[in-house]
């Protein structure tokens, strides 16, 4: 008999460990039991729902820095009806070690009343991601300022352990203000790294979704992950993390982060949301977040247009095509014999 290849071994491992082996094992390993699946009751909600999102694409990069285009904003809904889309930032961002302070300061200092950001060398690689996150927080704050008590704000991403995060100051201002104004804020993540099981990293949210379908078929539900045996440990901050299936007919569950003041009334808050998470276009996902994603994302055409504009500006300043190629060329593309497109 031929020896199994490494690929076959991994395939065996994956199919063995990721296919459902029974609820019992899930219960034993995670500490999550049937009673932890709490059904969400729909709530009558007359207020507005806001959904915040951001987008970040590289326009050009040249070994030590990159020029990105960043867009952030939010959409506003009343029940299932879209009311408006607000773009709060839509501009270029220069991600360079010497320049970033000038880019961040106006927002950190001017809006959140915080100090200038001082990044470590390892964090510099993520400059544009931080700036995008900052702009999302600015959008979140703008939404918060136009929201009324009882409204619901959804953020595309997580809040957990926010106090240890780089932009903790900004998020702190937001969550504090949201609590004061009695506005619910939830972070909804499309992806996560939660795993369970003693010997192999089984994807937790997917498993929880399957188990939820068995114990609460055709029902929207949530489970709180506090004090559960999940990696990485979701505890250790003053909010709570949930796994939520927003619509009983959907196969998908999502990680939802709620700050402590929302966690206290999480069933009520989620109840305001489920009526708007069953749209035909994106079943089982909060529709406002779906629309925010589509409205705010930077499309390839936009990216290419900005790149052309930038190259044109460089050309007007005397750079020849040869110089531009030298500056912007990624030599991997040459080796891979890839089309180099515009440049």
């Amino acid at each position: 008999m031929l020896k199994k290849s490494r690929l076959e071994e991994v395939a065996d491992l994956l199919s063995d460990r990721t296919s459902p082996k029974g609820i019992k094992q899930f219960y034993e390993n995670t500490g999550i039991f049937q009673d932890d699946f709490i059904q969400i009751e729909p709530m009558k909600f007359d207020g507005h729902t806001y959904a915040i999102d951001g987008s970040n694409v590289v326009i050009c990069s040249w070994s030590v820095a990159s020029l990105n285009w960043i867009r952030a904003g939010y959409v506003k809904y009343c029940d299932r009806a879209w009311l408006r889309t607000v773009i709060t930032y839509d501009d270029a961002f220069l991600a360079a070690a010497e320049e970033y302070a000038e880019e961040f300061s106006p927002y950190l200092v001017g809006i959140f009343g915080l100090e200038v950001l001082d990044l470590e060398e390892t964090e510099l690689e993520r400059l544009s991601s931080y700036f995008r996150e900052l702009q999302e927080y600015v959008a979140l704050l703008d939404a918060l300022r136009s929201a009324r008590s009882g409204d619901l704000i959804l953020y595309d991403g997580g809040f957990a352990h926010w106090k240890s995060r780089l932009l903790k100051g900004a998020l702190g201002v937001i969550l504090k203000e949201a609590e004061e104004q009695n506005i619910d804020v939830l972070g909804v993540s499309k992806s996560n790294t939660f795993a369970w099981g003693p010997d192999f990293s089984r994807p937790f949210v997917q498993f929880a979704g399957l188990v939820g379908s068995l114990v609460a078929p055709r029902k929207p539900w949530y489970i709180c992950l506090s004090k559960k045996n999940i990696r990485p440990n979701p505890d250790g901050w003053d909010g709570k993390i949930y796994v939520v299936r927003f619509d009983g007919g959907s196969d998908n569950a999502f990680r939802v982060d709620a700050p402590s003041f929302v966690a206290d009334r999480i069933g009520y808050t989620l109840g305001k949301l489920i009526n708007c998470a069953c749209s035909a276009e994106c079943y089982g996902y909060p529709h406002a977040l779906f629309r925010a994603h589509r409205e705010i994302r930077i499309k390839d055409q936009e990216k290419n247009a900005e790149k052309l504009k930038f190259l044109n500006l460089l050309s007007q300043r005397g750079l020849t095509e040869f110089q531009l190629r030298s500056l912007l060329l990624d030599f991997h593309d040459v080796i891979e014999v890839k089309s180099r497109g515009i440049i």
Binding site: G73, W82, L83, R84, T85, V86, I87, T88, Y89, D90, P106, Y107, G110, I111, F112, G113, V138, L141, D142, R145, V173, E177, E180, E295
Partner: peptide, 23 residues
Amino acid sequence: SLIEKKENQKGLDGLLQTKIIET
């Protein structure tokens, strides 16, 4: 807290060049 919030709002309004798309 109120004064701080008002100051922040001034900063927010001054920095944002908001685009609004409506129905």
